Computed example of a mutant assay.
Amino acid sequence: MQPAQTVRSGPAAERPATDEVVVISRLTKRYGSRAAVEDLSLTVRRGEVYGFLGPNGAGKTTTLRALLGLVRPTSGTATVLGRPAGAPSPGVGALIEGPGFYPYLSGRQNLRVLARYAGAAPDRVDAVLGTVDLLDRADDRYSTWSLGMKQRLGVAAALLKDPEVVVLDEPTNGLDPAGITDMRALLRRLAADGRTVLLSSHLLGEVEQVCDRVAVISAGRLVVEGSVDELVGLRRLVVEAEPLGEAAAVATRLLGADRVSVVDGALHLQAGPEDAARVNRALVHADVDVTGLRQEAQTLEAVFLRMTGPPPGAAGPTADGAGRGALR
């Protein structure tokens, strides 16, 4: 696995440290000899939708549970809104590992029960039902609801105390395309309301559409972090040339070994359009015959696979609600 990379540029990278509402520093959680999370550091800034991305088993849920004080880290620290992980705070709402409600109660009744225990104002119940578009089914039994409606009720429960920071663990897990579309719209509304959202997911297409910044995690370690635009901007220049060995050597001298690979008989260079002309000139100057040169924009899935390699047991790209790949 390659070392973690951080891509930072533009105004977002220049925000003051006081804008960091979630800070995880060198977090490690071990179960016996196995490290579920290892030396993980990341920050979430005020007002952004932050995607915590990786395949199942990568350590996402363990990290979020440590952040909320549901598990104790082996080492490292985590804070939310300046408070240590797990400290009571009305400014934090969370949905971890799916919602759990009384099946024989209606959606409204379930939220009233939670509101009493949480000390939330009674009028928050209908307010959050409206936020997640469930007012028309609020008096139906929870057991009669679809999975997508149940997930949205879980988000409503996380919003009862009108939190500033919302932590959501795989909110689209198990949803059909219509449910994924509804959840995507809900996440955008939360962001439009000015909330900070920390979202874990293994659906790369969904993260790409709703998140401002992304951290890619694999085997409990951070491998890359940056804005979605910055990460997919790590584009690929594909060069067909002969002799291929000499072409690779020239490209390596020009760009560095970490930006050059040989795939299926062609050079794959981590390079943008601004690099194409100078790569071509260097190859021609070295008497290398260039027979093809094309720019390929990357998806977030391509970035993930290039940084980490296919995760164990992962299937190839499959269609999800957004028509993009998913890592399972």
Rank of each mutant, 00 (worst) to 15 (best):
P84W: 08
R195M: 02
I24N: 07
D182C: 05
T61Q: 03
R189P: 01
G69Q: 11
R259L: 13
G86Y: 07
R253I: 00
P73R: 01
E242Y: 09
G76C: 06
G179Y: 03
E20K: 14
D212T: 13
L283T: 09
P122N: 08
V279W: 08
A282D: 12
D139I: 06
I217L: 14
T172M: 12
S143K: 12
P90H: 01
G82C: 09
L70I: 10
V210W: 00
P311Y: 02
A314V: 10
R46D: 14
L105C: 02
V132M: 04
A13L: 01
S201P: 07
V167D: 04
V167G: 10
L300P: 00
R30T: 11
A118N: 09
V290D: 08
A192P: 05
V224D: 13
A78I: 06
R15I: 06
V23P: 04
E296D: 14
R8K: 14
Q5T: 14
R189M: 05
E164C: 08
T74L: 01
R184D: 14
T43W: 10
I180N: 04
R278D: 11
A36S: 11
A248E: 14
R281H: 15
L269N: 05
L129N: 10
T252I: 08
T181N: 15
A322E: 15
D229K: 04
N280Q: 15
L186K: 00
D287G: 10
C211R: 04
P317S: 08
K150S: 10
R236A: 15
G69N: 11
E97V: 01
P11I: 06
L111I: 00
P3A: 12
P311S: 02
V239S: 00
D123F: 06
G86N: 07
P88N: 06
S75G: 11
G316D: 07
E242M: 09
S227H: 08
C211Y: 00
